[in-house]
Amino acid sequence: MNADLEMLYEKMVLIRLFEETLLKLFSLGHLRGTVHTCIGQEACAVGIVSALDSKRDTLCSNHRGHGHFLAFTDNTDGLLKEILGLKSGICGGKGGSQHLHVNNFYSNGILGGMVPIATGIALSQKLAEENGISVVFVGDGAMSEGVIYESLNMAALWKLPLLLVIEHNQIAQSTPWNLEHGSAIEGRPVAFGIPTETIDGNDVQTIYAATKKTVDDMRKNAHSRCLLLKTYRLGPHSKGDDYRSTTEISSHQMNDPLKRAETVLPEKVVMGIKTLCQTRINQMLESFSLI
């Protein structure tokens, strides 16, 4: 169990350090456009993705997708090059932060827009009969987009291996979730006949375990499932656009998924992993002459 946690923790630390680096690079003027970080939500990315088989499963992500990408591919260099706008980036610098693709990973900048596409991919996986699963990440904000519900209907109707992951981070850009939703989000997939499980989104081990079980079920018997992860966005929406009170944010600091893992792991292991990841990030930056 701890071996799993060490692996999961290392991925979360790498994502955290990578994104903190992005914010620094942004401040220094090395990045253009916008960067949406998932600071505070690393457990969602790592817990879900670590339970997938990147060879046959596919992942559709969104504007806040660095964590999903790194957990799925571990390709820090390719991602940084892409965000820096280099021709050698994974999308040649055309995509930037929000539009990423390698192998079975696809992300795009239109909220909810990837859900029908993930549904189509799930259809292709069902037709191919290789027990692959199509996973799509959305936030609670995107859950107001109509096309998601069209997709859930088809996924349920055709019993497609679609796993909808809702990262419920309590906020849509600057608007709290209770100003956006008239009903509990978790009830909605259920209304389409899609079994939905609500999980503590900051507990990486629980997420990992629940995902493994869900994915196993789906492979045995193709059908759609939903996991709703209750989490909290510790960082801003993108950069300098956070109007939440420091009291509110600091009340969630104790629930930081990294800190939660650190309470379980031996301090020595934690230090070792942190050093390892920091070294990897530093080496990456050195290779780009950014430090």
Partner: peptide
């Protein structure tokens, strides 16, 4: 030949998913 719900945006997306994975929808 798949008959679909009345979801024009949804079925377009589904077709795009198929197209990305080697089908000609």
């Amino acid at each position: 030949v798949l008959t679909t719900p009345i979801s024009e945006a949804g079925i377009t997306g589904v077709a795009i998913g198929l197209a990305l994975r080697g089908y000609i929808p």
